[in-house]
């Protein structure tokens, strides 16, 4: 049910987007909606992150899985158990760039009907890496449409990515990896009963949305071609706030379908699980250094508590204590 609703939603949104190819509609789907989506996306991201920024983080709760730094002759593992800001940044960088924690994914199996064995299950990591890195590279490559003149690094990426020189226009390695990664991530949720049970529409919808964007993009480049010069006029017009009705009309329905799904993605981003993009940096169990013992952490909300130390206590009760035979420190 979650699957079908999400699939139908993305399909419907795509069809809605293709309306942008109808006469005059280019202004709505090619100008108004993209700006609206960028506005919602950026505003939403700020709102979301600021709501997190206001949350206090008083405790040191880093998770560790390596020897902590202690005596000089005990070998420590700074990346698994960072002891200062620098090593914590190192661990975060590995997590954010290479999803290191996904590599710990294991699979429990009973073999010979009596032995429980844990084996490494790297496919989630492989699929996630393929998807996320391709996504980033595709976004940077798209700058050839949004920036004029095109920055050299975009051209460099474009060349490297197309080095296989298969087909015309050449197919990019990342286009294939992007779609293959997504297909695996979707199949993984669908194939395992346990995963299907915990998967919500909010898990399937983004997958289908990215697949819709990727497939329509593939279609635009390798199947029904578009007038790429008009597309660039529309796109770079959005970056530079200058619009051209002829280009908007020439860009074609399929392009508007692709663009509209991207607009939906932008507007949906801050309000969905996709904001893990920002959230991953704020995971307190990961971004803190394990200085729990080496540094004294004082509760920032400590206020002066009225105390009654022993010497005052003894002053108050000395006579009674003596009377009861309790030893006292000062006579």
């Amino acid at each position: 049910m979650n699957v079908l609703i999400s699939l139908a939603a993305v399909g419907g949104l795509f069809l809605l987007g293709t309306l942008g190819g109808a006469p005059g509609m280019g202004w709505i789907f090619g100008v108004v909606l993209p700006y609206l989506a960028v506005g919602i996306g950026i505003g939403g991201l700020i709102w979301r992150v600021m709501s997190w920024a206001n949350v206090p983080v008083p405790f040191r709760i880093p998770t560790t899985c390596g020897q902590q730094k202690s005596l000089p002759w005990i070998k420590s593992n700074p990346l698994e158990n960072p002891h200062n800001g620098l090593t914590a940044v190192g661990r975060m960088a590995l997590e954010v760039l290479f999803f290191r924690s996904l590599l710990r994914n294991t699979k429990a199996e009973v073999i010979d009907q009596r032995r429980l064995v844990y084996t490494s299950a790297p496919w989630l990591w492989i699929g996630a890496m393929a998807f996320h890195w391709s996504f980033l590279i595709i976004l940077v490559r798209h700058l050839r449409l949004l920036a004029n003149p095109v920055p050299w690094c975009v051209t460099f990426l474009q060349r490297a990515d197309g080095f296989l020189e298969i087909g015309l226009p050449v197919i990019y390695v990342t286009t294939v990896l992007f779609l293959a990664g997504l297909a695996y991530l979707l199949a993984r949720r669908l194939a395992s009963p346990q995963l299907r049970y915990i998967s919500l529409a909010g898990d399937y919808f983004p997958l289908f949305l990215f697949l819709g964007i990727g497939i329509s993009g593939f279609w635009l480049r390798h199947w029904t071609k578009t007038d790429i010069v008009s597309v660039k006029q529309v796109a770079v017009g959005l970056s530079g706030f200058s619009f051209d009705s002829d280009a908007l009309a020439a860009a074609g329905s399929l392009f508007y379908g692709h663009l509209f799904l991207v607009c939906v993605l932008l507007a949906y981003f801050p309000f969905s699980k996709l904001s893990h993009f920002a959230g991953v940096f704020l995971s307190p169990t990961r971004n803190m250094a394990n200085s729990n013992r080496s540094v004294r952490h004082v509760n920032p909300w400590d206020y002066p508590v009225k105390v009654h130390p022993y010497d005052e206590y003894e002053d108050e009760f000395r006579e009674k204590m003596k009377g009861a035979g309790v030893p006292v420190e000062k006579e």
Binding site: I42, L45, I46, V49, M50, W52, A53, N54, V55, P56, V57, P58, L143, L146, A147, N148, P151, V236, L238, S239, G240, A278, F281, L282, P300
Partner: peptide, 25 residues
Amino acid sequence: MNDKPKIIVGLVVVLVAATFPFWYT
């Protein structure tokens, strides 16, 4: 106590990068 200053710096960096096409153009 919270990490607001650091978070705001990070947010600004991301927003500047994300709006690259606008200021570049």
